[in-house]
Structure formats: structure tokens, C-alpha cells
Simulated assay, not measured.
Amino acid sequence: MNDRSAPPERRLDRRIPMSCPAAIHLPGGDTVEAECVELSVGGMTLRSTYVPGEAEVLRVSVSSPTGAAPLVARLEVKRCHALGGGRYEIGGAIVQVLG
């Protein structure tokens, strides 16, 4: 029997949809604007004009929707897909929470 339903979910952590401003902090000191569209204990999904390298580790800050201090983390890139219009969706695993 061929089951054409969605593939089984492989992620173990519950994902929370969001729409919070974020920033990608590059090693040279530049900052690229981003939007955090999904967050879990183990990772996040960002949308940005930045195109990361495969397995690149980014320093990312995500603003809190409640006004609390931002989440600052190191994110290892697991995937990057073009959305069109010069924007990309970046999915990654949080490897270290910095603040």
C-alpha cells in the first residue's frame, strides 16, 4: 500500500511558530536583519537575505515578543532554502545559548 501522507516528523522538540525580529551577527561586526519564524529547545528557523555556508555556525539574537532580554545563541546551519525575492529560510540547531 502506498501512503502519500506527510512524512513522519523527525524532530523531537516541539516547535513554536513565531514572528519575532532577529539579527545575524557576522564575525566582522556586521549585522544582518532576520525574522525568527519558528523556535524550539533545539533549534530555530530564520528568514533573511543572508546566505550561510553549509554547517556554518552563526551568532543570532532573537527579540522577545514580551519585551524580555533577547535570546542570543550560536546556531549551526542545517538547511537553507531560497524563498524568492532575495530572501532565504535558514534552519539550524542551537549549539550554545549565550544569553
Rank of each mutant, 00 (worst) to 15 (best):
E54G: 03
E76L: 14
V37H: 10
V77F: 05
V97S: 04
E33N: 10
A22R: 07
P27E: 02
G86R: 03
L39R: 08
S40A: 12
G92H: 04
L12S: 15
A69I: 06
V41E: 13
V60N: 11
I16Q: 14
G84P: 05
P65T: 01
C80E: 11
R14A: 07
E9V: 09
N2M: 01
T66E: 11
S5G: 12
D13M: 06
E9W: 03
H25K: 12
E89H: 08
H25V: 09
S63Q: 14
P8R: 00
K78I: 03
I24W: 09
R87L: 14
M44C: 07
Q96G: 04
E56H: 15
H81R: 08
R4N: 00
S61T: 06
S64L: 06
L71A: 05
L83Q: 15
E9P: 00
V97W: 08
A55W: 09
A34K: 10
A23P: 01
G86W: 15
M18V: 10
R15F: 06
H81Y: 09
A23Q: 10
P21K: 14
Y50K: 02
P7M: 01
G85N: 08
V77H: 05
P17G: 02
T49G: 11
T66C: 06
L58M: 10
C80F: 15
I94A: 02
T31M: 15
R11W: 13
P52T: 03
A34E: 10
G91Y: 07
V41H: 07
R10T: 01
P65C: 02
D30A: 12
L26N: 04
N2F: 02
R15L: 02
P52S: 01
E56C: 07
L98V: 02
G43P: 00
G29T: 08
E56A: 10
V77S: 03
M44P: 00
A6G: 00
A34I: 07
G85Q: 08
P27D: 04
T66A: 07
A23F: 07
R87E: 12
P8F: 00
G99Q: 05
A6N: 01
S5H: 03
L98E: 12
V62P: 04
I94P: 00
E35W: 13
C80M: 13
T49M: 12
L58N: 05
T49P: 02
C36E: 04
R74W: 10
C20I: 01
E54P: 15
S40I: 02
G84L: 06
R11H: 08
R4V: 00
R87V: 05
G53L: 14
L46H: 11
I16D: 06
A6H: 01
I90L: 14
T49K: 11
E35F: 06
L98H: 13
I16A: 13
L26F: 04
